[in-house]
Each structure stands twice: as structure tokens, then as C-alpha cells.
Amino acid sequence: MCERYVEAVRHSRELGIEILEAREQSVRARLPWQERLVGNPDTNMIHGGAIFAFLDQLGGLANALRVFPVFEITPTIDFRIDHLRAPTPGKAIFGEAECYRLSDHIAFVKFEAFAEDSDEPIATGLATYMRMQVDNAATVVAGEGAA
């Protein structure tokens, strides 16, 4: 389901997001290093914006897993990212999102990101999402409505 979801979202496909593991309310994925995602051409480090977009996408997936088998779309209300240390140049980034609380209208998600070669987190994040039931969300995940 997560793979189809990422496949349907054009920007996430462009980022090259690979799903590694999906659980009941959390997801783990990989953001491969790509030259075009580099923020500083002198250091070859991935741009903070790309890490933000990667984690934001994982938040949507964590929500989808948490509400499964119901289909909802969950637009982001707010998202904060803290960059704890620099990502390793030329290395992929691993990200994890957990929907740790689902209220009637809001999903609360926390995030961590790691460089491929280290156990120390490079970034943490915290976000809230709005729960919206949409009739055709199921067709998107099933692939029919995918652009």
C-alpha cells in the first residue's frame, strides 16, 4: 500500500523514496542520495528541504497505516524539523515516521532521520495533520486515479 501511495505522489517519486518497512502506525523508508537534491555544491550534502519533504511524505504514510483499512487524506497542518547534525555527503538518508496519536480530527506524528552510515539522528521532526475522508482516496492508493 505504501509503495502504491508513493508511486501516486509525483514529487515523492521524483525524490526516489523507497519504503523499507511498514507497521501498524509507523513507516521506515530510504531517501537515496541524488546529485539534484544537493543543497551546497561545495559539500554535496542533501538539502534540508529534501529531508523535510521526505519526512512529510512519511508522515502521510504513517497516518494511512494508522487509519487502515479506512482511506483518508491527511493534509499537513504544521511541521517542524530540527537539523541536529549535517547529513553525510553522498550517502542515503533513512527516515522513520510514527503516528503516535490519532484523535477524531487530528493525527500527531513524530519523525527521525539518520544518515546511512551512522546511528546518530541527523534530524528530528514533529507534525500535525488534519484527517479528511475522501471518497476517491481508495482509488488513488489502488492506482486508478494516479496521475
Partner: peptide, 16 residues
């Protein structure tokens, strides 16, 4: 583009 049904920009692209 993020959400393909609306369609809408990806929030991450806007943030970046």
C-alpha cells in the same frame, strides 16, 4: 505535485 486527486502542490516542495 503531491496529492494527485486535488491536485495540489506537495507540502514538502513548498517547504523546500
Amino acid at each position: 505535485v503531491g496529492n494527485p486527486t486535488l491536485p495540489a502542490l506537495h507540502g514538502g516542495a513548498v517547504a523546500g
